[in-house]
Design a protein around this nucleic acid. Structure first.
Lengths: 163, 163
DNA sequence: TGAATCATGTAAACAGTTACATGATTGG
DNA sequence: CCAATCATGTAACTGTTTACATGATTCA
């Protein structure tokens, strides 16, 4: 949310529109969650709230990032990616647009992580085959392996597109 | 958790061991979450708790599925998969092992879902290219497309392995 | 002697969902 | 006239995490 408010001050409603346009496919919180977080940003000094009266529409509250909010965003982007955290990587990839930093290390790190993880899963796959595991158990491993191979393929292609 | 208790009555600790062995790669709740859910199963009549005294180890509580618990598992497995719900599909795939039902429709449905979704993302990809979106925005789309292609590939292969 | 394992929990927070609630305007 | 859009929220959950807390046994 800090990463979207960086563009321009917005109300919760506008923020949700922005999310729907940009990041819905990897992060889509409920409306009520966004409205719950916004006042918390103000409490934490990361944003300010300004009531805006409207004549033909209900009044709205517009949130604007503070300097501390901008700093918090930069700090978050500089922290290591939590690869197992759903959507965390894609969120950082998307938001690093606003912070002029090289994306290459981010993508390379994702690639390294995926390859390591791939090694683990292949180990379990061999073990499952030795142990004569059920179709169901083995297929969940095959599934994970295909997803990780796709991640490596994507990272390679993205790095080529960058070059 | 119902799907693991179906095998044999277990304490929270044993349940966590089982999870770590089998489903850790697509669902790994915290220890405290498992301990929080178990008494809730008893409240809902889905399991019974039995205190077991141990001499050389701390006492433990062993949970056993009731008939209602077994029915709840079957009902859950028969319900449509929530494809967007993290781990939901893999959990059902893994647990349908215990319920003698054909897995084929489950995998076919996953494949259909992934292909539809793939169509959506490809549409957004074309639009993003027309609109001249940033590298970051376009790459998140490429990433999603690769993941979905991997899902379709996996489903095709799994259906072949089944045949 | 110290780490790992066995075993169970509480507390506090944040994440995320669905359902409930209101009320005006715009456009087909 | 009906649906969608604009706009904001509350309530009640379930999901999920990290940190705190205890205490015995086994094995290197």
């Amino acid at each position: 949310m800090l990463g979207l408010l960086v563009h321009r001050p917005m109300s919760g409603y506008e923020l949700l529109k922005d999310m729907d346009r940009n990041i819905r496919y990897f992060w889509a919180p409920a409306r009520s969650q966004v409205y719950a977080i916004l006042p918390r940003l103000v409490e934490q000094g990361l944003a300010t709230a300004r009531a805006v009266e409207q004549k033909e529409r209900p009044d709205k509250t517009v949130y604007r990032l503070t300097r501390a909010g901008r700093d918090a965003l930069d700090t978050w982007l500089a922290e290591p990616v939590e690869h197992d955290n759903r959507g965390h990587f894609l969120l950082k990839l998307f938001l690093s647009e606003h912070v002029r930093a090289d994306v290459r290390p981010l993508i390379e790190e994702r690639r390294t992580w995926a390859r390591q993880r791939l090694g683990e899963l292949r180990g379990l796959e061999r073990q499952a085959e030795r142990d004569g595991d059920t179709f169901h158990g083995v297929e969940t491993l095959h599934h994970g392996i295909e997803q990780l191979r796709a991640t490596v393929r994507w990272a390679d292609a993205a790095l080529r597109r960058l070059a």
